[in-house]
Design a protein around this nucleic acid. Structure first.
Lengths: 207, 207, 207, 207
DNA sequence: GATGAATGAGCGTTCATTCAT
DNA sequence: TATGAATGAACGCTCATTCAT
């Protein structure tokens, strides 16, 4: 493979020029989310980054490490977005709706469970803990919001942890829907609305 | 290779002697549920059955075929159990509770999505259809029950398909719970009760 | 697989009803010629005969045995046909033409070499001898005809064995021709004629 | 795994140190010619090269690719040799004799047909084209020489393409000869002479 | 900082062959 | 006479990982 010609002289450090390490991480995240841990090979990552496999290994000791870093950084980003939404003055229901919309819009679903289950087999105890922590941080934000809301009497008192898990889980129903059913919703906001309504009212509850 | 010991006395003729084919299917189902499609090799299955890989291939043309058969038979079994529960005269909420209890009790969660996503890559169009059909049959039972209930005015009118998916989805929160949190429920029935309550009342509703 | 229903009573030994053994041999010959030794599995043969692999093994101890029998019987048949052609009163050139036509017409080319080379690796010494004998018998007929012709002064004196091999070899050029070139001959007879002319006159000679 | 012993003294720097890729190609060519496509496993090649199978796959994406490269490079080499012979000022018959000698001497017979037939089943359309092209280039050299000769009136006018194929084919009779008959020729040149004579004079023709 | 070469271990699959019935 | 079940050995291929440069 021929080296690409490079303009002479000291290349001015381009602003947008991501460092190799970042490129790899970013690319890997995309691939992992798209195909799942197993179906992404280190070669796939390398090729998509226009570097060699050895280079990937230069930055990430193992495939699992790369996966870990990808997922954790991803969760951090998600948490930041969530944080922003949940720290406004809007009423809880509105916040939940915004939260749901944001997540359903992301190609990237939070169905981190799916990835985790697949990867867990290869994760060390220590890595598991780290993942857990990142996940927890993600959930805690929401849990606090719910707790506050209960205290203010906005919603009925119930197990806030469970309520959190249920809500996050709810956003993954999209994956159970077949194409045609998914299309029966006019927009993502539509689906978000229906889900939040369901979460809010339950089967029996008011309109 | 050791002959499998057979308990003394009882089995005259073939009584109790599971056919190899069944043993393989049964073993495979367990392994697939435990580790996921990718992490189960044909050799794993074979070894656990005390036969050779070739024997497994004698009964199942490909790994995917074996997986398909495993999952479809599993869904059929689940559906049968569900059917039994949903066709009684009990009020819907009771039925939902029984349904939830049964599923949460099974080591085997209905989180078929997780498996599907992982395996889908290798499934042929035709196989996908077949899977879909099995999955649909599974959901339809519940959907009908919900629809009937709406018609009788037992619960509020809403999209029964979505309600179904949400309910099934709800049962998978267990997977998002870490060990310690899971143990905070006295029993599976406890968890089932909480989940059904949530499903029934929503965040706002209930007494 | 259901047994095909059989009419009651003692089945009259149908005339055309080939014995299983024959069916197998016949089928195998066809497959071997079509795909070559390696690309025909015992299962292929069995399936095409509507019997099980075990049945094939009941009649033929090994795949090589089956191949041997197929090829030898084939060579015998070819020899008989050749014999008929070479024992007429026609002039030699005419006989050669008929010989060539007959062989080129057969889907079954005499390119036995190709099969042999492929199979030889698995043939035992003894089997090789047997094959050789069948091949020789095939060639001897032609060699005698050539020798007689030389003695009668019809053709120039030369090594009759070599002349035989060259002639048989000549008939295999068809395999070297690509489709389009093959089609440039109006008919098999056309090609046969050209080849025999070449054989007869050489590069320099003739009219 | 033993380090390969290297002869003392000579090879300073990489002199004589064939690159692994070349070693593999060279070894593979030999094996394919000796045993045919089917009977050579990637492991065979690897072992004979003192590398692992994975290394072979590092250089050649599939077995078919390795085969293709082997055969095409071989044909190129043959063509070069042929070219040299056919571009001298010698009379055609002498050239043909040299051509025949050269080929018969090579352990490597041009019986490329045999290999092709065996391998064709696994070749892609594109690969087939490439092979055809290499084969054609091989034949064209000879065909041109024959055509030129016809134009100069050295030999009788006839289909030059067919004449080419016949000649090349003729050189494969050696494969039809059993050991003992092959030994009846004093030397390869002897056999070459007889074959060229036959090709030149035909059955009927001059002395 | 980045790479080319090499490997070990494993996987899905095929197939000739055996054997008890 | 015919078969269903089972197997051992191989094969083509992939991939995470290592290492010298």
């Amino acid at each position: 493979m021929k080296k690409k010609q490079r303009a002479l002289g000291r290349p001015r450090k381009e602003q947008g020029a991501m460092a190799t390490e970042e490129i790899i991480l970013h690319t890997a995240t995309g691939l992992f989310l798209e195909k799942g841990f197993q179906h992404v090979s280190m070669d796939d990552v390398a090729k998509k980054c226009n570097v060699t496999k050895a280079t990937v290994y230069y930055y990430y000791k193992t495939k699992t490490d790369l996966f870990m870093d990808s997922m954790i950084k991803l969760m951090v980003r998600i948490r930041e977005r969530s944080s922003a939404i949940l720290s406004t003055d809007e009423p809880l229901k509105t916040q939940l709706f915004q939260f749901a919309s944001a997540h359903l819009k992301a190609t990237v679903d939070i169905d981190i469970n799916t990835f985790m289950k697949e990867a867990k087999i290869t994760l060390s105890q220590e890595q598991m803990e780290e993942m857990k922590k990142a996940e927890d941080a993600l959930y805690n934000e929401l849990e606090s919001a719910l707790t506050r809301s209960m205290e203010r009497g906005e919603i009925r008192k119930c197990n806030p942890r469970l309520a959190t898990l249920v809500f996050v889980n709810l956003l993954t129903v999209k994956n159970s829907m077949d194409e045609s059913y998914q299309n029966s919703f006019d927009s993502v906001e539509d689906l978000a609305k229906e889900l939040v309504d369901f979460y809010w009212n339950g089967l029996a509850g008011g309109n």
